[in-house]
Amino acid sequence: MRLAELSERSGVSTATIKYYLREGLLPPGRRVNATTAEYGEEHLRRLRLVRALIQVGGVPVSTAREVLAHVDDDSLGRTIRLGAALWALPQDPEPDEEDPAVTAARTEVDRLLEMLGWETARELAPLSPVHRSLVVAVAALQRLGYPWDAEHMAPYGELMHEVARRDLDYMETFDSEAEKVEVAVAGAVLFQPVLRALHRLAQEEESVRRYGIE
């Protein structure tokens, strides 16, 4: 398809598509002549991912470029490729290691990973921005007087492990390695609001079942 059709099918203006091409967010099309290029379904799919990252996820262009570079790096195995892409997404600030709540939270998070048998997560903890985010969140609860320890978190961890299995089952329905990583990255940006909304709806439902509506 030509640029105009790509714009029409994606809902992205030609000017924005050209900007994405210049910034390296979208791979160049197949050159037909000096002024015309052809684009395929992979460009349409990538445009949707770029828009998800930037418009929905609020990811800066420079960060989106880094994420997509990992998505396209077929020299990496799937696990490393996926992990690198997800770690490149915006993360929470570094925890204050001098804060006693952070120290206590780190202890509980490490106990949690041991209880769940998540050996890879334990090994990667010093490098993982996701691990740091969990420590920051648990520390905030500790400061507010909610002792969110490993025993409290373990059932949630088990439920989220089932969610992760379903995520990867869905990812594996796509054909190419790039598509698999793309859908995982898109899910990290777009599916989190779905999980959050389902959680709140479930809380509302359970509250009514237990306590009624009066």
Rank of each mutant, 00 (worst) to 15 (best):
A150Q: 06
D149K: 01
E114A: 13
W148P: 01
G117L: 14
M115F: 10
S133I: 06
P95I: 01
L124C: 12
R132N: 02
M115Q: 14
V109I: 15
E114Q: 12
R132A: 01
E98C: 04
P129R: 06
E97R: 04
S133F: 01
L113D: 06
L144Q: 05
A139Y: 13
V136A: 08
S128L: 01
A139T: 13
E114F: 10
A121G: 12
L116F: 13
H131Y: 14
D110C: 09
E97C: 00
L141A: 13
L134H: 08
E123S: 15
E151I: 11
V136D: 07
D110F: 07
V109L: 12
A105C: 11
V109N: 11
E98M: 03
Y146R: 02
R132P: 01
T120F: 13
D96S: 09
D149Q: 00
P100T: 06
L144A: 10
R111H: 10
S133G: 13
A140H: 06
R132K: 04
D110Q: 11
V130C: 05
R143W: 03
A150L: 10
V109G: 10
E119H: 14
Q142A: 11
A140V: 11
L112S: 01
W118A: 12
E94C: 00
L141Q: 12
R111I: 07
E98V: 03
E119V: 14
E119R: 12
V136W: 07
W148R: 00
T120H: 15
E114D: 14
S128W: 01
P93T: 09
P93S: 10
E98S: 09
L127A: 04
L127P: 00
R132W: 00
V138S: 02
E151D: 11
A105H: 08
V130M: 03
V138C: 03
